[in-house]
Amino acid sequence: MDLIVREAEIWQAEEIYEVLLRCSDETDFLACGSSERKETMPIEKFREFIASGTATNNKFFVCLDGERVVGMLGMHEEARERFKHRVSLGMNILKGHWGQGGGKLLLEAAIDHFNSMADLTKLELEVRRDNEGAIALYRKLGFEIEGELKNHFLVDSNYYSAYRMAIIKK
Rank of each mutant, 00 (worst) to 15 (best):
M41G: 11
L141F: 08
G71W: 04
V155P: 04
I16V: 14
E124A: 13
E14M: 12
F49L: 14
S35N: 09
M117H: 08
R6T: 09
N151Y: 11
I167M: 02
H85E: 00
L73T: 08
L141Y: 07
G33Q: 08
V127K: 02
H97E: 10
L125F: 05
L30N: 10
L3K: 02
M165V: 01
E77T: 01
A118R: 11
M1E: 13
I135L: 06
I145E: 12
E14Q: 15
H85G: 00
G53M: 00
K140D: 09
I16F: 11
A79H: 05
S35Y: 06
D130A: 07
F153I: 09
V19E: 13
A13E: 11
K150F: 03
W11S: 13
S24P: 03
H76D: 07
A118K: 13
F143I: 03
A118Y: 05
C63H: 03
E36V: 11
G71R: 02
F143E: 01
D119G: 12
K59M: 07
M75A: 08
S24E: 04
E81C: 04
R139D: 05
N58G: 06
H152Q: 09
E48A: 15
R128T: 03
K45G: 09
K59G: 05
G103S: 11
G133S: 13
F83P: 02
L64N: 02
I168D: 00
V62C: 03
S88P: 02
L89K: 01
G90M: 06
S52P: 06
E26V: 10
F46G: 11
R164C: 14
N92S: 15
L125Y: 04
N58F: 05
L137S: 02
E146P: 06
V127F: 03
N92P: 03
G133I: 06
L106N: 06
G53L: 03
G103W: 02
R37D: 10
F60E: 05
E146M: 09
A136P: 01
G66V: 06
F153H: 12
N158C: 13
E18W: 10
L94D: 01
I43Q: 06
R6S: 07
G74L: 04
I16P: 04
M1T: 15
A166G: 03
L154C: 11
R22D: 10
F61G: 08
L106Y: 05
G96Q: 12
I43F: 10
E14N: 14
V5M: 03
F46E: 10
K59D: 00
L20T: 15
E9V: 13
K122P: 00
M41R: 12
K169V: 11
K169L: 05
F114M: 01
P42L: 04
R68H: 13
L21P: 13
A31T: 14
I93T: 05
E78R: 12
M91E: 07
H113F: 15
E78D: 03
